[in-house]
């Protein structure tokens, strides 16, 4: 028996699709196609593109170096306060990024909790520097890597690692030749997600690192500024972000929708 088409549901679903599709269409309609090359070649645009690339990749690398060990500990080791740590990892996902940025400022700012001592000891000032932009992006993006990898490591059959150790493999060789290759697909997905989140970061960056062209002004910040001054630039830069987002979706489609 065929079920009857539930028209009221279809109408609402179409409205939902339009909600996603129309803004994209609006952006494409408004795009100054002829001047696109010139706009994207401008100094402001090139600076923003370059900074976005540097800070998002920097944040991804820091997230990998710090987040992977954390994911491993959360997945494999029973320790007191594990639930608390897991909660802390999730916090940046639900916290408004602006609040995260403010928190970073009060902590790593020149007169912040540990920003002052860092400044005195090393002369490194994080706020309003490119390093600050990396830190802000890491803060909001690292949870994606930790969550993805904790799940992957938890689901990995530990008997593979056991078999490797009975064959004489030490901890490092087990990690390198068994654990990491087996979680490689998840690691790739986690890295892409982390990178995409870092690339789109706005609130924490503008609060903590400011909006200095060539130093902390990433693509989203440049779009925000350009909306006030030159709408064509804003649209062109937005289009770049859309293209990047679509690329990420295509790259990860198998993970989200299964093989198709």
């Amino acid at each position: 028996m065929r079920s009857r088409t539930p028209w009221p549901l279809v109408a609402l679903a179409v409205a939902a699709v339009l909600l996603f599709a129309l803004p994209l269409f609006g952006l494409l309609v408004r795009t100054p196609w002829s001047g696109l090359g010139e706009i994207l070649g401008s100094e402001v645009a090139r600076d923003a593109l370059w900074l976005s690339l540097v800070t998002s990749l920097g944040a991804t690398i820091v997230a990998l170096i710090l987040g992977l060990p954390l994911a491993w500990l959360l997945a494999r080791i029973e320790f007191p306060g594990r639930a608390l740590v897991r909660g802390l990892v999730l916090l940046p996902l639900v916290l408004p990024p602006v609040v995260g940025g403010a928190a970073l400022l009060f902590t790593f700012g020149r007169r912040g909790l540990i920003g002052g001592p860092i400044d005195e000891l090393t002369g490194l000032v994080l706020p309003f520097s490119t390093w600050g932009a990396v830190l802000a992006a890491t803060f909001v993006a690292m949870p994606f890597l930790v969550i993805t990898m904790e799940g992957a490591l938890r689901n990995l059959d530990t008997r593979y690692e056991g078999a490797a150790s009975t064959l004489g493999a030490g901890r490092w060789m087990v990690l390198r030749r068994v654990t990491l290759p087996l979680v490689a697909p998840s690691l790739a997905a986690g890295l892409v997600l982390t990178w995409a989140r870092a690339l789109g970061e706005f609130g924490a960056t503008i609060t903590f690192a400011g909006n200095l062209q060539g130093r902390t002004q990433t693509l989203p910040l440049a779009v925000f500024v350009a909306l006030e001054s030159d709408r064509d630039v804003a649209v062109a830069l937005s289009l770049v972000m859309v293209a990047i987002s679509l690329t990420v979706l295509v790259a990860l489609r198998h993970r989200w929708w299964g093989a198709s």
Binding site: G162, A163, S165, T166, L167, G168, A169, G170
Partner: peptide, 8 residues
């Protein structure tokens, strides 16, 4: 485990 000569 890796220092034992045990085949499994």
């Amino acid at each position: 485990a890796e220092e034992r000569q045990v085949g499994v």
